[in-house]
Amino acid sequence: MAKLFFCVKKNVYLCNEEYCKYKIIMTLREVARLLNGQVLLGENRLDEEVTMGFASDLMSEVLTLKDTPMLITGLCNMQTIRTCDMANLEYLVIVRNKKPTEEMLELAQESDMVVITSEYSMFKACGILYADGILPLY
């Protein structure tokens, strides 16, 4: 049976295909705008679309994911970037107004990542993205 996702915008349950059909998919540009965010890396990729999101400060949890969602995290150190590299995660949102170091950005650049920072709390950032249709992994 198809997995159903609750679409907050339409107040209905939709299966994944319908979700895509309704173009609830968001671009990274939209993600940055919604989070009042700053794009630190990957300006050239902002028209790419995001469907799935995952939020965690625990890197070993992130390393168990089979999919490659956008990662929303409050952890801002070299391990955040390394974890994304190992897990093939290319879209990173860092919340709680934490600023990555030059060294982190250099490493992120090597794997062609998009890095967006936001001053919002994890809860607020996730709430906004969820309400606007970013899907959870489970």
């Binding site: 625990l58 890197m59 070993s60 949890e61 390393l63 168990t64 391990q79 955040t80 974890t83």
Partner: peptide, 15 residues
């Protein structure tokens, strides 16, 4: 503080 210590590393290696 580095984002580790969930007790998931070894089980994940196994998987």
């Amino acid at each position: 503080d580095m984002g580790f210590g969930a007790g998931m590393g070894l089980p994940n290696m196994q998987k």
